[in-house]
């Protein structure tokens, strides 16, 4: 198939699947909290709705930056789709995508000129603590498989079994990132409700639509990468079940856990990351990991 068509199809799948999974996430959280909750398709409808809403631009914004940043946000997650599901390329590109995403989150808040956005921008710097466990997880995957290439990691797993059984603590570190990125997460300090909607507060209309579009793709890409590098070669049904299962688990965690304060959030992430890191190092040196 033509590469451009393949990219387009995968981006549409990522957007639709990500939106439905985020809708499911909200639904499960609501059911855990004994509320009826919105329909599963609600996140998708919201995303589409924003594209047709009036776009107001506040006077305090840095205009070019404020508008450009949402396109960059959408673009980096499209790059995530290309590097992951389409090309099965290097994990380092996906790490780079996540690092740039953090910078975009930061700049989106600062460009708005709003105190809520600016505070969220400061917290985005703190929340970069999640990148340390992510990087450590990628390093362990490299040490075991000898490759950063997703295609080669899949081939390794088809020969030696899923990596989640070989380096479970590295998988846990990656799962921490997924919890952090999930909506209403205990670690979502950039979108704390005292900051209204955090770095998204001052983005309206189609600009917010692009942000919703990016969120949906980001959720799909993160789940896809996690399932691919830790659960071996999967078919479409395997991905579907895996993505729904992770969405269930994160929704349960988020529905029953209060939002942590920024310092507690960072310390918890770094502590869990450090325990998993040294645990995996110990497993490698004691020969548990071949």
């Amino acid at each position: 198939m033509n590469l451009m068509a393949e990219i387009l199809i995968q981006v549409v799948i990522a957007f639709l699947a990500g939106s439905l999974l985020l809708g499911l996430h909200r639904k499960i959280m609501a059911r855990v909290q004994k509320r009826p909750g919105p329909p599963i398709v609600q996140h998708l409808i919201h995303s589409l709705k924003f594209f047709f809403k009036e776009t107001a631009i506040p006077k305090t914004v840095s205009k070019v930056f404020y508008i450009g940043i949402v396109f960059i946000l959408a673009l980096i997650w499209v790059v995530g789709v290309i590097a992951g599901p389409v090309a099965h390329d290097s994990l380092l590109i996906l790490f780079g995508v996540y690092a740039v995403y953090k910078i975009v989150e930061h700049n989106s808040g600062s460009s708005s000129g709003s105190p809520y956005g600016k505070l969220s921008c400061v917290r985005a710097v703190l929340s970069a603590a999640t990148e340390l466990p992510l990087f450590a997880a990628i390093v362990f995957v490299y040490l075991v498989t000898g490759s950063m290439n997703i295609g080669e990691i899949i081939a390794y797993q088809s020969a030696h079994g899923p990596l989640v059984f070989t380096v479970p603590l590295a998988a846990l570190m990656f799962f921490m990132l997924i919890i952090t990125k999930s909506p209403y997460s205990p670690f979502a300090i950039t979108k704390d409700k005292v900051l209204i909607s955090g770095f998204e507060t001052e983005h309206f209309g189609f600009l917010r639509g692009f942000m919703h579009f990016s969120e949906a793709i980001a959720w799909y890409v993160l789940l896809w990468v996690f399932l691919t590098i830790f659960f071996g070669p999967l078919n479409a049904v395997g991905y579907l079940i895996g993505m729904i299962a992770i969405t269930f688990i994160t929704a349960f965690i988020n529905a029953t856990t209060p939002l942590l304060s920024p310092n507690h959030s960072v310390m918890t992430q770094i502590t869990i990351g450090a325990i998993c890191f040294f645990g995996t190092v110990l497993m490698i040196f004691t020969g548990v990991v071949a």
Partner: peptide, 20 residues
């Protein structure tokens, strides 16, 4: 992958129609 895109698209359209 085109078939999966069609499935997910029709499921989403069906959901919106069902909601309305």
């Amino acid at each position: 992958m085109l078939d999966y895109m069609i499935y997910i698209l029709t499921f989403a359209v069906g959901s919106i129609l069902g909601l309305l």
